[in-house]
Structures are given as structure tokens and as C-alpha cells.
Amino acid sequence: MRPARAARAAGYVLAACLIVGLVFSAFGVPRAAAQSEQPSPTPVISDDQVNAIARDMYCPICDNIPLDVCPTAACAEWREQIRTKLAEGWDRKQIEEFFALRFSDRVLSLPPARGLNLLLYIGPALILLAGIAAVYFTVKKLLKKPSAGGQTAEPAREDEYIRRVEEELRRREREK
């Protein structure tokens, strides 16, 4: 394989891996669904149903502690509100939107992909692509570069080491 083509192929493969990976990560990781085995007697909406939504929300009073485990009174009220809304038949999306509209986007664990927030989603991807491009061009240049004096004549120490190990193994296998 010619170096330039090899480098290009590697670039494509890496890009493809990243894309496939991103797709997997978008659909693949299911948040383990909370399960409650015995339906609880009193409330129509169980704590688990509330927590399933609350775990992805943040109450500004407890910085960086998800709403489902934040112990403050304010958070308890918020969870009750989620329970009320669920009882009224709202779904997760509606409840998240309601809270975001009321208390600003900071209550959401993932900023909605709109407006300026797109920067958060596109920015790193672009930088990553730039990085891939940089690696690609570097590799291309380095592979093309005329060798600085008989490349294969300068095996690094560890290659020597691996070679010796391989040789040793081969001999061993022959003897067996």
C-alpha cells in the first residue's frame, strides 16, 4: 500500500469509526429503566416515575446534584410538581419544557440543541474533525518525507527486543 493512500484510508476509517460510534452512543446507551416490582399502594405516580425524570434535571439550589437526590425543601417541591404533572398526563418532554420555560434552561442536564447551544454540539465535532485532518496531513507529510539516512537501518531498541522474543517463540514451537 502506498503511504499516501494508506494514510487516506486510515483517515476514512477513523472518521467512519467516529461517526458509527456517535450513532451508537446516541441510540445505544439506554438509561436503565427504574423498576418497581410491587405497585405501591397509595400514590398513583410512584417515586420511580418521578425520579426517572428528575434524575436528568438540576435544581439551581443544589449545584451539580441531580434533582432526584437533592435533599433540599425546594427540590422536594419540584419533585412534587413533576408528580402532579405526570398525574395530569404530561409526558417527559412536556415536563422538561415546562421547567425550562419557568426556571430557565439551566434545569436541564442537556442544553436543548437550539440557538447558541448548537455551538456545544457542533463545536467539539468540528475541532475533532480539524484534529483528524491535522493528523492526516502530518502522517501524509511524514510518510512522504525522504528518509534521513537509511530508515530500516536504524531499528529502535524495542523492535530488536520484539524480534528476539518472536525468534525465541518460533524456535520453541519448532522444537515441540
Binding site: K145, P146, A148, G149, E154, A156, R157
Partner: peptide
């Protein structure tokens, strides 16, 4: 360690 690793070996032609 081989003291003549390419890092410092030759006086860089290109």
C-alpha cells in the same frame, strides 16, 4: 538504551 537514537543522531538534513 542505545545512545544514538535518531533524536540526536544526525545533524538534520531537510
Amino acid at each position: 538504551l542505545n545512545p544514538s537514537t535518531p533524536a540526536s543522531a544526525e545533524p538534520t538534513p531537510p
